[in-house]
Simulated scan of single mutants.
Amino acid sequence: MAFAAPVTLQGRGVRLEPLALAHEAGLAAAAADGALWRIRVTSVPEPQDTRAYIETALAMREAGNRLAFAVLDDASGRVLGSTSYHDILPAVRRVEIGYTWYAQSVQRTHVNTAAKLLMMGHAFDQLQCHVVGWRTDNFNFASQRAIERLGAKKDGVIRGHALRRDGTIRDTVMYSMRAGEWPEARAQLHYLLERHAPA
């Protein structure tokens, strides 16, 4: 059985389902909410590329190095975006969390915090990971702030690391959290979600 086997994670009004071709229309609609593919520092698929995006994620799951999720509103079933475990290293019990994007209408709501709480909890508590990592574009300042709010520590910057969609070469900012840091981070995430909770 795979170290990070497909699983559905649910709580705080969101549901993370293993990404499947059945999510294609919902994922395309989520990306269209804000025309997210136009953002230079993200990897959101253009509407006509949504199926290929899912097929790539499924091939990576088969290879054992990525487990992609569709993020849904638990009540309505509406697809809100996508996120993944990736760069999965069973031998050292490490995963990274990334490929994360959400419809513009749910950005800066409880959705990302709730999804990350589910994923970090599963990684540390069920998979017994020693480390969870994140990486982001050096110009994606919103992503860097969001990762730091989770309690992750900045490891450093890998210069000239990857191609952006516009053909320029990006530096990658690396973050991580160790298992011993998880209890404090979890308490803070619960606190943030309580503050976001509707009255």
Rank of each mutant, 00 (worst) to 15 (best):
R145T: 06
E24N: 11
A179S: 11
T50E: 11
G121F: 04
E62V: 07
L16M: 13
V41F: 12
A52N: 12
R40I: 10
R12W: 13
S105I: 04
G133K: 01
V157E: 02
P6Y: 06
T42N: 15
R145I: 03
S105K: 05
V79R: 08
G13E: 15
P90V: 01
R186G: 01
R135Q: 05
A68S: 11
R149E: 08
V131H: 00
R51E: 12
T168I: 00
V157N: 02
S143A: 06
V106A: 05
E55T: 14
A20C: 12
D49C: 09
R12Y: 12
D125C: 03
A162G: 06
I169R: 06
R186Y: 04
V41H: 14
A22Y: 13
Y85A: 05
E184Q: 09
V111M: 03
A185K: 03
Q104E: 14
W101N: 05
N140S: 00
A68F: 14
P183M: 02
V173C: 01
H130I: 02
L89E: 11
P18G: 13
Y102E: 07
I39D: 14
A28P: 11
V131Y: 00
R15V: 07
A32L: 10
V95T: 06
F141E: 15
N138P: 01
A25Y: 06
G160V: 02
R12S: 12
L21W: 06
L72P: 15
A31I: 09
T100S: 11
G64F: 07
A35N: 13
A28K: 13
E55I: 11
M60Y: 14
A25L: 09
L36P: 14
T113V: 08
R170W: 04
L193T: 04
A103P: 12
E17Y: 09
L89P: 06
P198M: 00
I39A: 14
A2V: 12
T109P: 08
R149N: 10
A91H: 07
G13W: 10
Y99Q: 07
W37Q: 13
